[in-house]
Structures are given as structure tokens and as C-alpha cells.
Design a protein around this nucleic acid. Structure first.
Lengths: 225, 225
DNA sequence: CAGGGTATTAAGTTTTTATTAACTCTGCAT
DNA sequence: ATGCAGAGTTAATAAAAACTTAATACCCTG
């Protein structure tokens, strides 16, 4: 797994839409690139190799469906996530889109909230990395046994604490925005305050007794021994 | 059981069937790949090494029976599960199929519910590690004689209690989700509430008199002396 | 030193599990 | 048949743990 933020390419000919989606995705920690037509989308997709491509179905130069087909025909984009934005809730287009290999749809007019849940849901699904024992220095995190060890001493973490620690520890050094943490550990649809994260971080630090989570002020947290 | 998703290959020339089965299996957490004829099935089977292959008996290119025979002739597919879909409840075909090495049949028209139970049942059966006497410290669990001993003193457990204890004890330390327990001990198609597990756990603890089952709140249970 | 975070506490809520008792179902013996 | 006995399940309540919030103190950074 890479330690970098997920890259998202958004293609739509309406600047407003681009603006709104870019803003919202950036806020969640995604790296966003935009394109205003099908050709530009293709070109940028090849260049930046995004993890997710958001395509307006109706675009100049090439339609979203065409772009999708072209992308899917290349092995490099086999696993790239693709979401369509459809202006009309055109059932026909939806079916055709799914056949073309899109992973999801969002109907216009777009609700940023809905859009974000969908995007996050896709990545969450993708993210389900199989539970793997992590060993970092004198720290062991074993999801199978649901146990954390420091210097061979067992430490019991509660569910959320464990998930949070695991999330951070899978990618040491990578900074997780508070929003990313909320998405991964709590799920995007749950609404909890920011302080909740602090409290859990604190408990983890306390229980582990070692300083392995670093605060990045105004940004988030990262795992670092 | 394992933390990886089981891979299932479905081969049928009717898109509807593929669609329905794929949908249902995906919902259960299986990873599904489809093929529309015998040749494609063979090719994909070799590529993805599925845990289960679902074969329509009547297919273009190669029939399900042929595919099955070809697969079974390769060592790599010795343990791969194979299910046939038979359009006619053709007794003759069924016999021939079983001889070819299929593990089960589902007759068309297919009920998704029935199909799922069969699939789950197969995997459950596969999972059933052979009955083996477990000795952990002063605790002995003998599935053959269906008896549990603590400090050489016999303790009688009821069937479900025993199965549950055995499940946990086979992999000490490993946390079993409530769902996993339900699948393994009760079977995936039986609908019983979560509290049922609690009650059985309690009885086991009570009868054994030793604290060997640990609760992991919000996650499940694990065996641990 | 002010202001925008973050840490720390303690208290309040919710979720989850333990416990107990009652109820269903089945087989078996009367 | 009738009824008893044990297994299994459900339901209700109690208890515990986990989670969230809110209030306050703290600490950088500009």
C-alpha cells in the first residue's frame, strides 16, 4: 500500500460542479485534479494515474461513457474506481454505464454529502485489506487476536481504539486527516465531533505507554515510533 | 474462517443467472468472477484459482461436466469445490456429474436462498477440521468421545456447547466474530439471535468452571487460558 | 499575548454483554 | 396419548464496558 493520499480526477464541463466536488474531496484528504472535457480527462488520467475517476456522462469532446470504456480497455486502469455523474436519472445510461465498468453513480443535482459518502464507501470497500499482523519495533498489533503487545506484554484496546491504531500503524509516517480517520474508523455517515478522536488517541497513548502517535497540528495524526 | 474472501467462479451462458448469483454471492462477502462458456470458465479458473466453481451443465464451447473433468485432472484443482447447475433434473447427468467429482448440485430454476445455503454449507464442510483431541493445559477436549475434561474430571457439554467450545479452542487466541460463530456452529441459514451465543458461552464457562473464554466487546469471543 | 488548535478530565449516553428465568420443541418413558 | 426431561432459544433485566460530549486547561505559533 502506498502512503500517499488517494488521487481523484474529476471531469465535468460545469466549473461550479468541479469547484464544489474538489473542495469537498480536498477536505477529506483526497488529492484532486480536474478536467473539463473527455479528452482532458483521458490525458490527465494517464498522467497522474488516479485512484478514482469521477466522470460526467455528458461532456464535450468525449462523453463519460466513452472515457470510461477507453480507460477500462487499458490494463493500467483495471482497478481504477470510476463514478459517473448523470444529469438525468436515465435508467438506460445507468445500465450501459455499469456494463462499461463504472463502480457507482451519482445523480445530479449532486448533494456533496451524498457524493462524499459514495466516494468514501468505495474506498472503504477497496481498503478492506486483509487483517495482517503488524510488527513495528517492540510493538505488535494483531487484528486476528485483537491484541496489542509492547515488549511482549499484552495490552487490551477497545474496538475503536484498536481500529484507530491499526489504521495509523498500517501506514507509518502517513498523516491522516481527522476526516480520513472518521471515515475509516467511524464510517462516513456517523456524525461525531472532532474531540472524540482526541479522546481515543489519548487512550491509546495511555494504554500503550509509548509515544507512537504524533500530532500534526491543524492537520491530523500519524503513527511514528 | 480465513480472513480472505473466498473466490467463486460462476459459469453460465444465461446473463440473468450470472447476474443473480453474482449479486447474492457478493452480498455474502464472496469475491465473484463470471464466465459465459466452458472455455472462458477454464481460462479464468486457471487464472484466479477460485475456491469454488459453479458450472452450468449446458454451456457453449464446453459443457460443465467437461470443464469439471478437465479441472479435476489437474492437481491444482484437487480441492476446489465444484457445484453444478442443472436445468433438467436429469438423474443421469447428476450421477455422471458426481462421478466426475462435483461436490453438489443445484437444480434450475434456482432459488437464490437455496443456492446460498448450499454454497455456505460446502464451505462450512470444508472448514470442519477433522476431529482431533485438543489438550490445552489442564483442559482436554475430545470430539471423538464428545467429552471435556478439566483436571481429569469429566464434564458433560451439550451438543451446541461442545461445538462452540471446540470451534474456539481449535484456534486459541483467535477472535471469532459472532457471525463466524453463527456460521460455523449454527449454519449460515439458521436465524438465531445474538443473545443465543451469549447464553451458550455462559453455560460453557459455568460448566467448565475455568475462565478460558474471553469476551472482546463489540467484536466476538476467543479462547484463551 | 491572543487565538486556534489539542490534551485532559470527568460526567453523561449508548451499546454490548451477562444473567436469569421462562418458554418451545423433541424424544422418551410411562 | 400424557407428561417429563433436557437442549435450545428467546426475552427481559441488570451490569459492564465503550463511546461521546462538554468543559477546562494547555500549548504552540504568529
Amino acid at each position: 500500500m502506498d502512503n500517499k493520499a488517494r488521487k481523484v480526477l474529476i471531469a465535468d464541463d460545469e466549473p461550479d460542479i468541479l469547484e464544489i466536488l474538489k473542495y469537498n474531496l480536498s477536505n477529506e484528504g483526497y488529492e484532486v485534479v480536474t478536467a473539463k472535457d473527455g479528452d482532458e480527462a483521458l490525458e490527465k488520467a494517464r498522467r497522474i494515474q488516479p485512484d478514482l475517476v469521477v466522470l460526467d456522462v455528458m461532456m464535450p469532446k468525449k462523453t463519460g461513457v466513452e472515457v470510461c470504456q477507453l480507460l477500462r480497455s487499458q490494463p493500467a486502469f483495471k482497478d481504477t474506481l470510476i463514478i459517473f455523474l448523470t444529469a438525468v436519472s436515465d435508467e438506460g445510461t445507468q445500465i450501459k454505464g455499469l456494463e462499461t465498468g463504472a463502480d457507482d453513480y451519482v445523480a445530479k443535482p449532486i448533494s456533496p454529502k451524498v457524493f462524499l459518502s459514495r466516494v468514501n464507501a468505495l474506498f472503504r470497500r477497496l481498503n478492506k485489506t486483509e487483517a495482517k499482523v503488524l510488527k513495528i519495533d517492540n510493538l505488535t498489533i494483531d487484528p486476528e487476536r485483537f491484541i496489542v503487545q509492547v515488549d511482549d506484554k499484552d495490552i487490551v484496546l477497545a474496538k475503536k481504539e484498536f481500529e484507530l491504531l491499526y489504521l495509523l500503524a498500517v501506514k507509518p509516517g502517513r498523516v491522516f486527516l481527522r476526516n480520513e480517520i472518521l471515515n475509516q474508523v467511524w464510517g462516513n455517515d456517523v456524525i461525531v465531533g472532532d474531540r472524540t478522536i482526541d479522546v481515543h488517541i489519548r487512550k491509546i497513548r495511555q494504554k500503550l505507554g509509548i509515544d507512537c502517535i504524533t500530532t500534526v497540528k491543524g492537520v491530523g495524526y500519524k503513527f511514528e515510533l
